[in-house]
């Protein structure tokens, strides 16, 4: 790896750390929330927003931006964490997360937050909407990409697969789908609730350019996002990211029931300390 790349990756690590810090700040407001997802997906979002995507945070509706659709609305906390680090939102607003009349509702909605492009609380709309935007962008001869972040539990929703068929039929090579494969969904571990494996083979059979990476390995993610953008075949792209729930805070990583986490008041201090202990050098 070149020195420039090393520097870039270590800077990304520093920023992903701040994204995690932002997420804990928000969760602490309520003493609970989808904080384990936010910690797990922080690296994926950091590489998306801070490495791969063409954006102007001070101009969220800039026509030539890459689009980002948060299909899993409950990941709003993760989204606000990265939108803050990327410069769309002031850090001071984080503590309003989920409060009355905040711009940061618990479930991400397009009309509330600068940089939010879809309302996703009813899960399974991300890839279908990406198909429409992908078609629209091609129609406008735009070179922008549409990213959409899905959960692994979400993959059981039928519309996702209708969209997958269509994305491939229309050769939507401007779609880069992301799956946060954290092996957890609402009722428990995804493999026991509804197994979606073998996922790589499924998406390949549906006509996608598929990569599967360790979603908490920044250099691997950087490479995967680069590949996705540069891949020559006219196919929709998908990066399946195997992530660890609670990543970066050891006692949350170890927690079994983590789809929706409650912490005692004194545990938040421990969470900050645990995160600090793993701060990148």
């Amino acid at each position: 790896m070149s020195e420039g790349n090393l520097l870039h990756n270590s800077r990304l690590a520093e920023r992903a750390h701040r994204v995690r810090h932002n997420a804990i700040t928000m969760a602490e407001v309520h003493g609970q929330g989808y904080v384990a997802q936010a910690l797990g997906v922080a690296d994926v979002l950091s590489v998306a927003y801070l490495h791969a995507m063409r954006i102007r945070p001070d101009q969220p509706e800039w026509e030539d931006r890459d689009r980002f659709l948060l299909s899993v609305g409950h990941y709003g906390i993760a989204h606000y964490a990265i939108l803050t680090e990327a410069g769309y939102l002031p850090e001071s607003e984080l503590v309003t997360y989920g409060c009355d009349d905040s711009r940061l509702p618990m479930s991400g909605m397009a009309s509330y937050t600068p940089g939010a492009e879809m309302s996703g609380g009813s899960i399974g709309l991300g890839l279908p909407m990406a198909v429409g935007m992908g078609l629209g962008l091609k129609r406008k001869k735009s070179s922008s990409f549409v990213y959409t972040l899905m959960g692994d539990g979400e993959l059981a929703e039928g519309p996702t697969w209708e969209a997958a068929i269509s994305a491939s039929h229309y050769k939507l090579d401007n779609i880069i789908a992301l799956v946060d494969f954290n092996k957890v969904q609402a009722d428990g571990p995804s493999p026991t609730i509804m197994s979606t494996e073998p996922l790589v083979a499924k998406f390949e059979a549906f006509g996608f350019y598929v990569q599967r990476v360790d979603g908490n390995d920044l250099p691997a993610l950087v490479k995967a996002f680069d590949n996705a953008r540069e891949h020559p075949e006219p196919k929709p792209r998908i990066i399946i990211c195997d992530t660890k729930m609670g990543c970066g805070v050891d006692f949350l990583e170890a927690r079994e029931k983590n789809h929706f986490i409650r912490l005692e008041p004194d545990e938040w201090k421990r969470a900050y300390e645990a995160l600090e202990a793993r701060r990148p050098a």
Partner: peptide, 26 residues
């Protein structure tokens, strides 16, 4: 559909595991 715990039917699922169908988010 992946909301057993959130709709109280997990109690039925625990009592009669072989009479409960977890359909996933579908």
């Amino acid at each position: 559909a992946d909301l057993a715990k959130y709709t109280d039917i997990h109690i039925f699922a625990q009592a009669y595991p072989d009479r409960f169908y977890q359909m996933g988010m579908s």
